[in-house]
């Protein structure tokens, strides 16, 4: 069997689990959860430096961008202009060209504004960015994103932070079937089994934040997700049995006494 390699925008990742670094109790917990998850890529947000308290700990004291791939995101941006500004700043910070774009449309659902998302993707690609893109699970729009030069298609399973799991497996499957770039489920995963389902559908990876950070024991949940993603991928590669409407005995009838 060929080696199963996960490659995004030319980068080979060891783990198909990408984790977010938000919502943890403290940086210590963030670092421990990231380690337990086995992820070699984490998402990070760009925000103002705290100029009042110079001694407050910062993320990079706990996660080393030389050891783990930082994927700057545009969380909280509600239009193309804000998203582009954020990612251009991220690039200046340390040469990050691989970024995660999300342009939100609505505060209540945090659904993406796909028109501005597609427009921003085109601009970023032109500027030399490699863009992984948060999107709806609409296959037509996902195709438009891919045609716009997206490096990865990242459809939501359900609203960000909702923990509702994959609500439209058919759409996710349609997107997987048509895409030539990796499809990574982003947002809405609630628990480890949801990640297994995503991987069994044929997703190349999953991005998890709330489901780990909001678990009672985030570090143990990070480990659960690590196993769930490996398990789901193996199951996908192994190829499941076909579904039958009637029973088929597992033990042979020959030699029955």
């Amino acid at each position: 069997m060929n080696k199963d390699i996960f490659k995004v925008a030319g980068k080979i990742l060891k783990s198909r689990l990408i984790v977010g670094t938000g919502k943890y109790k403290n940086f210590n917990e963030t670092a421990k959860a990231v380690q337990a998850s086995g992820a070699d890529m984490v998402t990070v947000a760009v925000r103002r430096v705290n100029i009042i308290d110079k001694k407050k700990p910062i993320l990079t004291d706990y996660l080393n961008p030389k050891k783990i791939i930082f994927l700057p995101n545009t969380a909280g941006c509600f239009n193309s202009e804000e998203a582009l500004r954020t990612l251009r700043l991220a690039r200046e910070m340390g040469g990050w060209k691989l970024v995660k774009l999300e342009v939100l449309a609505d505060k209540k659902t945090l659904y993406p504004n796909m028109l501005e998302t597609i427009q921003s993707t085109k601009i970023l690609v032109k500027e030399g960015f490699k863009v992984m893109v948060y999107c709806t699970d609409d296959p037509i729009l996902a195709k438009k994103l891919e045609d716009s030069g997206a490096s990865a298609i990242m459809p939501l399973a359900s609203p960000i932070g909702s923990g509702l799991g994959i609500q439209n497996k058919v759409n996710i499957s349609l997107i997987i079937k048509q895409s030539k770039v990796p499809v990574i489920i982003d947002a809405g995963i609630g628990t480890a089994s949801d990640a297994t389902i995503a991987m069994e559908l044929g997703c190349e990876g999953v991005l998890i934040n709330s489901a780990i950070a909001n678990a009672k024991n985030p570090i143990l949940m990070a480990k659960a997700f690590k196993d769930a993603v490996i398990s789901g991928r193996n199951s996908y590669l192994a190829g499941r049995m076909s579904k039958n409407y009637f029973a088929t005995a597992s033990s042979p009838t020959k030699g029955l006494i």
Binding site: Y24, T30, V44, R47, R48, L59, T60, M93
Partner: peptide, 10 residues
């Protein structure tokens, strides 16, 4: 002037 850095985010 805006000075920004990376913080935890999903």
């Amino acid at each position: 002037v805006e000075i920004v850095h990376f913080i935890g985010g999903g």
